[in-house]
Design a protein around this nucleic acid. Structure first.
Lengths: 246, 246
DNA sequence: TAATAAAAGTGGTATAGACAACTATATGAT
DNA sequence: ATCATATAGTTGTCTATACCACTTTTATTA
């Protein structure tokens, strides 16, 4: 493999470049679990950076679970399960990709609306504030898997209703086109039975088990709600995975 | 409040002392959510330390969720929910107490067994190793809510089968009687329909929606499995709550 | 040859300083 | 009064250096 060096002309911070370069090697399997990584001083010499910068890259990989470090011994690639992000906030697209499935969508409905009551309270809407509603059937390997309805506060992304969300991730669009970074979400999960409408859309029998979620998503400040999304997944084809910490 | 200064004679690293001093003020309520913290340079002057040391204290508080930082503005105490442990590993007892419900149990079955195949693989059992099986109906305010079946590696808690788990938490017993601390768990969640047996035990109709989980719990090293628990909750009375991070 | 000591290498902590990018406030000009 | 500019203050990134504590490797001694 061709040895990369950081690009000092790039606006991307040096420590971040080193970190991502190592992360990519770990994720692609070039560097395997328990394999030894370059030392801080090796990275310093190879990239022509300060040791503290190299250290920052390795320390952040450690806190993200990709690496474990032992004084006097070195830095090593961690076992994959330790590097999983804890209950990661992902879009449907990212979720499917993580599972090795091909994500897709069919747009059922897309409009700017005004909402009231419970939904308005949860999103902490101001008077007259519009909401962008996007309802899609979500596909995995071209089979219907879920119905997803997003309610997005339009004031944060004016004009988003012009985009076509058949082949486009909502979260990616927020980031790329509007510079919006999401921080965290609160999600509830419950079981219920498929209504006629949902059964038809998802190709199951009426009364089949459904896993239903409601997610309230916040910006990076952790308290400004931006989206409320309700999703219904086929119970026979979707299993949610959660990581718990003591 | 008396202003503390770091103790330079202590073997405890300086950045750690500063961090814990601030954390204590945040947790005790002396510093409130969204209240502004001392700047890096303030801490540098006050404690007679370098700015990078002060910075490290603040940065670690940020990564632990106690603080948020904005370039040009300063560091602020985060809202409490940001500092909550993400998706906490709790027992049924703790879960019910968190919801303001009174937890209870009826023991259906309790025995030492030998298991094979998938279960043995997941628990990484060694040849001949015994497993403690505990099956209970879990009550909330004296109403059946879930069926919970725990498979616990007996080698970590020999003699646990002698305890009565009608009014006793399994996780509390592990901690109190055997000094076992749990670290994390991986849990799957799915929806299915109630079998005849489960419907009868939980007082619902056959075919009612059920939320089913399987949890593999690890010790503090993060990789030694100790318990595999399968639970089935009434879909009409239980909603799981999950916190997600981006 | 084996045991011990020294040297080399590794991560951990800390200092000092510099510059960049951003926010908030004060000052001066219109 | 409003707008533009300057100043002060804050976090973000980076460099260079030093010393400590630990592990591994190499050299020396018995």
């Amino acid at each position: 493999m061709k040895e990369a060096k950081v690009n000092k002309e790039s606006p991307v911070p040096l420590y971040y470049q080193v970190k991502e370069n190592l992360k990519e090697k770990i994720e692609s399997g070039v560097l395997e679990p328990n394999e030894r990584l370059p030392s801080e001083r090796d990275l310093e010499n190879k990239h022509g950076i300060s040791r503290m910068t190299a250290r920052r890259a390795l320390t952040e990989l450690e806190s993200e679970g990709y690496v474990y470090r032992e004084q006097g011994k070195g830095s090593y690639v961690a076992e994959p399960k330790l590097r999983q992000a804890l209950s990661k906030l992902t879009s449907f697209t990212e979720d499917m990709q993580d599972r090795g499935l091909e994500p897709g969508a069919e747009v059922l409905n897309k409009e700017l609306i005004t909402v009231e009551d419970q939904l308005s309270d949860k999103l902490m809407l101001q008077s007259g504030e519009k909401v962008f509603l996007l309802r899609r059937v979500r596909l995995a390997d071209n089979e219907p898997l879920a119905i997803e309805t997003s309610h997005l506060r339009n004031k944060f992304c004016p004009g988003i209703e012009e985009f076509d969300f058949k082949d486009r991730s909502l979260y990616e669009t927020l980031k790329r086109e509007f510079g919006i970074n999401l921080g965290r979400a609160e999600q509830s999960v419950e079981a219920n039975l498929a209504s006629k409408f949902k059964a038809d859309v998802l190709n199951v029998e009426k009364g089949s088990p459904m896993l239903t979620t409601e997610r309230l998503t916040f910006l990076t400040d952790g308290e400004t709600p931006i989206e409320l999304a309700r999703s219904t997944y086929r119970g026979d084809r979707y299993k949610m995975l959660v990581e718990l910490r003591r």
